[in-house]
Simulated scan of single mutants.
Amino acid sequence: MNMSVSEHDHGEVREPKPSFIKGLLFLFVLLIVVAGLAIFVLTQRSSEGPLIISEDPTPLSVDVMTASLQQSLDLDEKFTGLVAAKRTSELGFSAGGRIARMNADVGDRVVTGQSLATLDTRGLRSQLNSAEAQIAEAVANHALAMSTVERQNALLAKGHVAQQRVDEAVAQATTARARIDAARAQADTLRVQIDLSSITAPYAGVITRRNFDEGAIASPGAPVFELVESSALEARIGLPSSLAAELVVGDTYELLGDRGPVAATLRSVTGIIDSSQRTVTTVFDILDSDAVSTGAVVRLEMQRSVSELGLWVPVSALSEGQRGLWSLYIAKQEEGAWRARPGLVEVIQSEGERAYVRGAVSDGDRIIIDGLQRITPGQAIHPKLAPTATTANEG
């Protein structure tokens, strides 16, 4: 039994171990991998050195326009003004009294001389009747006095009366004549008061305000109606002094109203600069009063040239920068490749989809006009002239 066990143990110790063979196989595989890497590196080499594996990404295709600077900027500016009536009057009674009739209301169009309102004139007419009676009495007394003078002159010629009696008769006749004149003056005064008890339109126009109704007591001078002249309108427009000097008094210009063009003749240029607006007031006479209404806004278009070196670019070519400036991208060729480089500009004037700018732009620069959100400074690009780029810079 002991011998069989020891023989079994002796057989297990003598079996060969595989660790050495595995090590040789691992070393062999490692050598093959290293050799493969070496061969790959050697095959990738060129005469100028190792090949650069990482390359720039594919250039981004962008639309560009060619910059063409201009020396000045022609601005089409619009200046606004208000249409107003040449004459506006507040009408009232010169003397107070009770209003008997109101013949017009707000919105009525009236003609020259039309009666608008009257006071109760019964008291005045009664006084006028009394004055006319006094005139008749004075006339009768004057006639009697003149007859007395004739008789006294006849008696004086016969020597029946003294000269004093003649003189007294003449004095009485003169007094009677003065009473006639006084009575007539009183009657004329009453007639004037009766006339002033009626409001009549001094010119053709439109009633824009009515402050009283029948039966009300109007105090002297209180405005009863506001009358605005409708047949003669004018427009007052403030202009810079340089532009106002270009206008010619008497010439006809076209103003723009809400209902279309309005022809107007320049009546005057004040020549005085408004301290708050820094403008000169110009006054235009509206030729057709039916083409525009009182209070309407009208505009005068004029072109002004500003000496400012710059160019027009599409708004899509601009992105907001800092401190009130804007930035755009210029396509620049560097070492045979096109790259996007930013430049700061200032917006001088904007009109719809375009803007006039000045700044870091030179003649001939290729300005990227769209897709700025995809571009970063120094990015590789492929510029192509946009079909509309030829008209983008027209002023």
Rank of each mutant, 00 (worst) to 15 (best):
I53E: 14
T80N: 09
S72H: 13
V64G: 02
L60C: 05
L75M: 07
T80F: 04
R87V: 06
L73R: 05
A67K: 03
T66Y: 09
D76R: 12
L75C: 03
L51W: 10
M65Y: 10
A67T: 10
G81C: 06
T80V: 08
L82P: 01
A85E: 01
A85K: 02
I52R: 10
L69P: 01
I52K: 14
D76M: 11
K86I: 08
T80I: 02
E55Q: 15
K78A: 10
T66E: 15
E77C: 02
E77W: 03
D56H: 12
A84M: 03
L75A: 12
L75D: 08
T80E: 15
K78G: 11
L51T: 06
L51V: 05
L82A: 07
L69M: 10
M65I: 11
G81P: 00
V64A: 10
E77I: 02
V83F: 03
E77T: 08
L69S: 09
K78T: 13
F79M: 04
R87Q: 11
S68M: 07
T88Y: 02
A67L: 10
Q71L: 10
M65L: 14
D74I: 07
Q71E: 03
L60N: 03
F79V: 01
S61A: 15
T66C: 07
D56A: 05
P59V: 02
T66D: 11
V64H: 02
S72N: 08
L60A: 07
E55Y: 02
M65P: 07
S68H: 14
D74S: 07
L60F: 04
V83Q: 00
T88F: 01
I52Q: 09
D74P: 00
D56R: 06
I53P: 04
D63M: 12
T80C: 09
S61M: 14
V62D: 04
L75K: 08
R87C: 00
Q71A: 15
Q71N: 13
P57N: 06
L73Y: 08
V62A: 09
G81F: 00
V64F: 02
P59G: 09
F79H: 14
S89P: 02
S72M: 06
M65K: 14
S68K: 15
L51P: 00
R87E: 12
S54N: 15
A85V: 00
V64K: 07
A67S: 12
T66Q: 12
S54C: 05
D63F: 01
V64E: 01
S89D: 10
A84E: 09
T80Q: 08
P59H: 10
L75P: 00
P59R: 04
R87M: 04
T88L: 07
S54E: 14
S61V: 10
L69C: 06
M65Q: 11
A84N: 06
Q71D: 12
V83D: 03
I52W: 12
V83S: 00
S54R: 15
V83T: 03
L60T: 08
L69N: 07
K78D: 13
S54T: 11
K86M: 05
K86W: 00
E55R: 13
A84D: 09
V62W: 00
D74L: 08
L73E: 09
D63I: 04
P59T: 15
A85I: 01
M65R: 12
S72W: 03
S72D: 14
Q70I: 09
L60V: 08
P57S: 04
V64S: 01
S72Y: 05
G81E: 01
I52N: 11
T58L: 09
D56L: 01
T80K: 03
G81L: 06
V62Y: 00
I53W: 15
S89E: 13
